[in-house]
Design a binder for these strands. Sequence first.
DNA 1: ACAAAAGTGTTAATTTTACACCCATGG
DNA 2: CCATGGGTGTAAAATTAACACTTTTGT
Lengths: 233, 233
Amino acid sequence: MGEQKQYDPDKYERPSVTVDIVILTLRESKLQVLLIQRKNWPYAGSWAIPGGFVEMNESLEAAARRELAEETGVDDPAIHLEQLHTFGDPGRDPRMRVISVAHMALVPDGQLALRAASDASDAGWFPAYDPPPLAFDHDQILSCAIGRLRSQVETTPAIFRLLPETFTLTELQSAYEHVLREDLDKRNFRRKMLSSDLLAETQQLRSGDHRPAKLYRLQEDAAGRHKAQRPYP
Amino acid sequence: MGEQKQYDPDKYERPSVTVDIVILTLRESKLQVLLIQRKNWPYAGSWAIPGGFVEMNESLEAAARRELAEETGVDDPAIHLEQLHTFGDPGRDPRMRVISVAHMALVPDGQLALRAASDASDAGWFPAYDPPPLAFDHDQILSCAIGRLRSQVETTPAIFRLLPETFTLTELQSAYEHVLREDLDKRNFRRKMLSSDLLAETQQLRSGDHRPAKLYRLQEDAAGRHKAQRPYP
DNA sequence: ACAAAAGTGTTAATTTTACACCCATGG
DNA sequence: CCATGGGTGTAAAATTAACACTTTTGT
């Protein structure tokens, strides 16, 4: 900060600072969010977005990654984690003044070892667009995450952070459709995607119950072209 | 935050929390930022983005508006103020752990009573795209603000928050050009603007040295409509 | 053979770009 | 009368939107 009065910082009461993490994934073709159930006052029994205190020697991102690892077992710098917004209204937590730096993490559905944190009676995945009632101002935080995700998905290759390394075009389209909540035209979608330079064709096929589908992966250098243009729509 | 261990919050050392405000305006047809000169260690003599501590009973936005009023004399809820990002790396301020919630304010050039804060030896406007060396991580904060402004200007009517109530189309175009740093085609610009439903024609003309120009104002209900493309927070 | 998902082109509509001259006023 | 900024239209190109059938596999 830039002020420069001869403040004695100790004469100011200080708030607690936490990070909250909206952890999103695509499971069962739906956008889902990880929530933990509170055991204690306030909001005992309600579901909440996971979070925790920022320690004095760690950055905000480090704190968020630490919490992410604690909740999901995922400790991978490749996981997409971004800061969303800071929520700091006095009274948002009745126990004390808590300023919370909200983050969003996008994790591919996979072997997420969902280990409930020691302080949660339970943890689970819920439909992000239709969550249970949430503690504190966590409905706002979730809305903020979903809004950001949608905007990212429309303008960057963020969708791939929710997908496994290889995927079919139908899976990719379905991911877009479930995040954006709109139906896309199959032929237009495929034409646009294939002409976008975002995808690399693999040699493999996904054999399933029906006609096998080509598998694609994100083009290696696509991260850089990120901001450039909207892949879809 | 959502964790719920039986934390004793007092056993945690707490960081200081501040708000910093990137105050932007269009002066002399240039995008300019308000900076204050530091008098004391660290970065004595450097220019810095104004800011100050968040008090225990005020929201982050209230703190930012209070600082904005202290620096500029502008105390108007209509001023566009938005939260940008929170900067909290340990060591960003050598005096202590400071977590700063950066904001951006857009003020129309006008009778800004620039009163230097008591702790600043001076305050002044500087070209936002070509600022002097800045204290702390304030270059990052400024870049963040400019990036956000550009994205807002491309997708929302934010540009009008930098303009006086009435303006000519040429002034409007010039505002876009100086914020986006690109030249726009006059006829395409005017056609697009006039067909956008964002503008209301006034009966007045701006008489200057040459042919008078029609004055426009932002359409009353325009705040909602242009939101179409990118919602950010 | 059939059910189910994969894959494939064309046309119309809309949006974006490029581009140059006349008009109204003040000095 | 002239210098200066205000104001205007059209055509080509690019992008987007709408739309239905054939292919391949497993059962």
